[in-house]
Amino acid sequence: MTTVSEFNEIFATSKPIIGMIHLKPLPGSPVYDGKGLKKVIDQALEEAGKLIDGGVDGVQVENYNDPSYFPDVAPAETVSSLSIVAHEVHKAYPNVPMGICLLADPIASIAVAHTSGARFVRATVFTEAAVDVSGLALRRPHEILRYRKFLDPSIKIFADVHIKHSAPLAMRPIEESAYDAAYFMADAVIISGKHTGFETPLEDLKKVRGVLPDYPIMVGSGMNKVNAQKILEVASGAFVGSTFKIDGNSYKSVDCERVKEFMKVIGEIRNR
């Protein structure tokens, strides 16, 4: 299993914070405007710049605004579009660790990561079948791991457990599900609240930490300046999206001042 120290090496810091780049709708999305990728790329670069100037330790490129997502195999137009946009982000900021979350297809995410220069993927479904808002998601870790070995073994897999906006097909204790994800070679597990922006239950984090004492456990939603201290006493790092946006609204643009204020708090936590 990956250790916390090995995880920290990816971001050159402890308790890394990964800022979310929520892309404009991509070709094929029901809300895509049909005008090509220029606006998508421009917005992605602008959001990346604000996050990086604000001090985040990494960024993740995600097709967040493509409702609804394919529960298993993402279509060609989404894969190709996300590859192009992510490549532009990496080209502009080559020294910043970048991740890919192509909802909800971790194999396609690995392909995009390899072609764009990303270092990790977020696998929203990894070890268990889930009843997702988009349908039944049936990911199989053996397929994901074999594809990674075939294409690019250096790419890290950060795997959600009981992913938000869904439920396991067979409900199990969250710590058992997390242990299995780690056992099946995920490089970190992600624990979230029920929906985007909802606070991650501290009790869930503690349960998972109890069975994975020296393993990377990330928070996937709901971290803010107020709860960061108590969460990072247990968690190894976090994905942060809504908190960085204007008015804390996940659909609005990144507010660089909110990023700076949050990262100042994180710096104080790291130095205690």
Rank of each mutant, 00 (worst) to 15 (best):
R119P: 06
V133D: 15
I110N: 01
E88Y: 08
A113Q: 05
M98C: 09
P94R: 09
P106Q: 11
V131P: 00
A113Y: 05
V121Q: 02
A130L: 10
P106E: 07
V89P: 02
L102I: 12
A86L: 06
D105W: 13
L102E: 10
I107Y: 08
L103S: 14
I100F: 07
C101T: 15
V96F: 08
T124S: 14
A113I: 09
A123I: 04
P97G: 04
V121C: 03
A92S: 07
I100Q: 03
A92Y: 01
V121I: 15
L103D: 10
V131W: 00
F120D: 04
A111S: 14
N95L: 14
F126G: 00
L103Q: 11
S116A: 14
F126L: 04
N95V: 11
P97Q: 09
A130H: 08
D105M: 13
H87D: 05
E88W: 01
D105L: 14
A129C: 06
F126T: 00
T127Y: 14
K91C: 03
V96L: 09
A108W: 08
Y93W: 12
T124R: 13
E128K: 05
A123F: 09
A118R: 05
A118I: 08
P97H: 06
A92D: 00
I110A: 05
I100W: 04
E128I: 04
L103F: 12
P106L: 14
R119N: 13
A129Q: 00
R119W: 11
P97I: 08
P97T: 08
C101K: 14
V96R: 02
A92N: 02
A113L: 05
I100C: 04
E88N: 01
R119H: 14
I100T: 05
F126M: 02
V89W: 01
T124Q: 13
K91Q: 08
P97R: 08
F120M: 06
A129P: 01
G99I: 07
A113K: 03
I110P: 00
V131T: 00
H114I: 09
M98L: 13
T127W: 12
P94K: 07
A108R: 08
V133T: 09
G99D: 03
V96D: 05
P106Y: 12
I110D: 00
G99M: 08
V133Q: 11
A113C: 06
P106N: 10
C101P: 05
V133R: 12
T127G: 15
A104Y: 15
A86D: 02
I107Q: 06
V133I: 13
T127V: 13
V125P: 02
A108T: 11
L102P: 06
V133C: 10
C101S: 15
V121K: 01
P106V: 13
R122P: 07
R119V: 13
H90D: 04
S109M: 10
F120N: 04
T127C: 15
N95M: 13
G117D: 07
